[in-house]
Design a binder for these strands. Sequence first.
DNA 1: TGCATGTAGATCTATATCGAACTATATAGA
DNA 2: TCTATATAGTTCGATATAGATCTACATGCA
Lengths: 165, 165
Amino acid sequence: MPDSPPPPGPWFALFTEIGILGQLSRAMLEARLPPGFLQPHFSVLNHLIRVRDGQTPLALARAFQVPKTTMTHTLAGLERGGLVRMAPNPRDGRSKRVWITDAGRAFREEAIAALSPDLAALTARFPSDRVAAVLPVMAELRAVMDAMRDEDPDDPAQPPPPLVR
Amino acid sequence: MPDSPPPPGPWFALFTEIGILGQLSRAMLEARLPPGFLQPHFSVLNHLIRVRDGQTPLALARAFQVPKTTMTHTLAGLERGGLVRMAPNPRDGRSKRVWITDAGRAFREEAIAALSPDLAALTARFPSDRVAAVLPVMAELRAVMDAMRDEDPDDPAQPPPPLVR
DNA sequence: TGCATGTAGATCTATATCGAACTATATAGA
DNA sequence: TCTATATAGTTCGATATAGATCTACATGCA
């Protein structure tokens, strides 16, 4: 078996595309944000609106699949800019809760507005029907990989599947 | 118009999925690489095999859509590990060329082998037909965004479309 | 109640990423 | 040929990302 193994299946190819698309979309967004703000800042604000306010930093870290230290850093940036407000959690003295401020809402809306020409240009070249068509597949794949991460017994991590909840 | 604008179309949703999938796939890969090596190292080796050897660092930076300083750093890591070999380009005194070494080939093959259980587990939960089905769409989207980046007159970058070449 | 263990977050440190500025070489045009 | 400009790569500095460790609080159980 002297053959050099080709990357198995379409997985490598897909992950390569995903990686590059991630960088391109990130660059597109960040070109429209005020200096000092990056994609994670926008994404967190967006999440606070789309999902809900008042979550803990750890919940946000899990939602974005980043280490909690990274989320601490991102939230500190948002708080410095007055885009979120953080307060101790009365229910749990260890944790905090995070709310978006009016300035944060405005920031998000301005970013979306600033981005709309880019998205329009994109839609002209790549109809959003096609995006809508692949979206459920990508979402499901994300969910599957997300779940695997919490299961993998080979990974020096989590206890076996949470039996309750 | 007091309505808060919802993220327009499916674009935001797709980019969110892409971002998270990027992180998850990167984590999956890096968990199987020897310490000190990261996804970019693997990706460059893979590219040198899949596409071709002997490219310049700048060509690699463009292929991966990263700044050239980042590629310098990645290549330095690969060279330190003996996985690539770099030599001046006799055709152009400014540039270098990059070749993968035997150790680099072995490294890539071992990484692929180490990853195959993960990919098998993934395939069990998410058939690769479905991956193959979305792959062309994602590849085309990447190509479109790639092209836009080199065109965008609104971006404080490139001169208008290269007329020659 | 008291102790063992687990969890949320912060701090410290290392490294990845990337922009600005620099050096050396190449290329185009007078 | 000479000069202006462009390009390849590096260096330097700033910041993002993330692992290890620490502190404070929570939870479970004797």
